[in-house]
Design a protein around this nucleic acid. Sequence first.
DNA 1: CCCTGATTCGC
DNA 2: GCGAATCAGG
Length: 241
Amino acid sequence: MSWTDERIDTLRKMWEGGSTASQIAEELTGVSRNAVIGKAHRLGLQSRPSPVKPNEPVADKPAAAAAPIAPEPVEPKAVPAPKPVVAAPVPKPVEQAAAPVPAPVDLDDEDEDDDEIDAPVIAAPAAPPAPIMRSVGPGGFLRQAPGEQQAPITPAPPRRLVPAKPSPEMADKTSLLDLSDKVCKWPLGHPGEPDFHFCGDKVNPGFPYCVAHCGHAYQAQLPRRDRRPPPPLPFGGARGR
DNA sequence: CCCTGATTCGC
DNA sequence: GCGAATCAGG
């Protein structure tokens, strides 16, 4: 199989939609999981949380409350001077041709026409909120820091809490929270889409769906030779955005 | 072992 | 450009 526009489109949608490479590969018959990942990268769809992500050293944030965890007050022991957190870069022995991380500034190379390309100035990363001092309890839980105290929960809400409907269009739709044993759980649309909801009709007693959707869900098994192979579902196809 | 995504590298 | 092989974390 080759990467037609449609297949690429499906890959894009599913990848961005959070499907795993395996799921995508299953949908796009004829390709392996690796093929999907490879293609995704070539398409520039790189991101997405990966289980294998080396923690990129976040430059330096040395000082700033270097000891977030306060040990027990006892046991003075010999407390050596707190080792200054020198920003020892620790250039881990990288194999392969080292791609030297660009030093702070650009060294002016000899014959480099410094043509003053207005480089997109990356805004300096906003300073993260100052870490809160916490101590660790016996079980490893974090103790609440002073000043952090707050009412645990809202005491006795005045009215019955009602799930907010994000939009008027959803007001009469059956959401996940509306499901019960009495209403049809047949999904309409696709999870993640704004109008995704459930059928919500009265169930066919003993079934999770209404009579009509039971007809879809439960079908007599046909002899193999009489079965029609289901057409490949276009993932997200034909649905306007 | 299973899963995951990332990367490499011969084609 | 493609994807199997491989790597590596969960």
